[in-house]
């Protein structure tokens, strides 16, 4: 009925007499009316003035969301899915072909590799990371993988808690990363021998034993990766947590792209770290487990550090030949 009323109004229009308009000598606001097409030619978004004190409400039309949507719904799942899957495949293949790195024969003497604070920090970051990673992945894989068998309602509830978890664990994660910077950045400063270590492929490809301090070059790369990646995730995450407080919608879209992409790559990289820290290398887990490692293991992987800690005086035999290492590989 109401539409009919509008139509009824139009019936008046139809019968309206034609009446030629005179050319105007002054400004004619009707003739100069802004049109959407014309405005889109000038700007990517259309906006103007609004009385409510809310800047985002000033934007009328911003089609850029469509690119973000394309990224978020097509590229990001592919980037994340492909990189994570590829990494898993590589690790599985590596494990199957090469097997874990065997530890040197135990000396029976254990030295402290990571103190309590260090381990606590590590596990705080690790736990947070796993939760963040999984709940993060839920933002784009959840509806594709979990929702079908969990049902909309339960999945909604789960995802809401996942969102809270994601928001909450961002803080211990960030604190942990900052603590790591304090704890480990000195030992992770690049040194000349890192270059040798890298050239030798961390001992995997080189023929000679590679020397390493407390952290080898691979670990240092991982460390700085975690620090930079972590901070990037934190900063982008903070912006997402406080949407539109710092930037507008378009920048939010970019932020989200950055957060998602870095996150996916981060997860991918950490998978490798988890591999080496657990089943990929015998004895490595202990370093973060009870904090101690066998002196032999230490000499095997971090000879310079082992020397430093245990002292040359305690050395009972020369470092094992590099060949030995390779043989065990």
């Amino acid at each position: 009925m109401k539409c009919f009323r509008l139509l009824a109004l139009l019936l008046f229009f139809v019968g309206a007499p034609a009446f030629a308009q005179q050319p105007a000598s002054g400004p004619n606001p009707t003739a100069q009316s802004a049109t959407e097409d014309q405005l889109f030619k000038q700007e990517r978004t259309i906006g103007g003035r609004i009385t409510i004190p809310d800047e985002r409400a000033q934007v009328l039309i911003q089609p850029q969301g469509r690119y973000w949507r394309q990224f978020h719904e097509v590229y990001l799942p592919w980037i994340a899915g492909a990189s994570i899957l590829l990494m898993l495949i590589v690790l599985v293949l590596f494990y199957m072909i090469a097997g874990p790195t065997r530890a040197a024969a135990s000396t029976g003497r254990r030295i402290i590799r990571f103190g309590f604070v260090e381990r606590f920090t590590h596990w705080m970051v690790a736990t947070s990371f796993i939760i963040l990673g999984l709940t993060g992945l839920n933002y784009f894989f959840g509806k594709r993988l979990i929702m079908p068998w969990l049902g909309a309602s339960a999945f909604g509830a789960f995802s809401e808690w996942a969102k809270y978890a994601h928001n909450f664990f961002a803080w211990p994660f960030t604190l942990g990363v900052l603590a790591m910077v304090v704890l480990w950045s000195r030992d992770n400063m690049p040194r000349r021998l890192d270059w040798a270590w890298l050239k030798a492929g961390g001992g995997l490809t080189g023929r000679t034993h590679v020397h390493a301090g407390r952290f080898n070059a691979g670990q240092k790369i991982m460390f700085w990766g975690v620090v930079l990646g972590g901070l990037a995730m934190f900063l982008s995450g903070l912006m997402l947590l406080l949407p539109l407080v710092f930037v507008g919608v378009n920048a939010m879209q970019v932020t989200n792209i950055a957060h998602g992409t870095i996150g996916a790559l981060f997860i991918t990289a950490i998978l490798a770290h988890i591999y080496i820290g657990t089943i990929g290398m015998e004895g490595a887990f202990d370093a973060m487990g009870d904090g101690s490692v066998d002196l032999a293991w230490a000499r095997q992987h971090h000879d310079l550090w082992a020397d430093e800690v245990a002292g040359s005086a305690t050395r009972e035999e020369p470092p094992p030949p590099a060949e030995g290492v390779r043989q065990r590989l």
Partner: peptide, 29 residues
């Protein structure tokens, strides 16, 4: 459905018209 919605704000990034609204938009969590 507000029962399912988790208030993530993605719809606001995607929407060309700024339609989605969030209560307490800037309050953490």
């Amino acid at each position: 459905s507000k029962e399912i919605c988790i208030g993530c704000g993605y719809c606001f990034y995607a929407c060309p018209f700024g339609a989605p609204q969030f209560p307490k938009l800037s309050n953490f969590g």
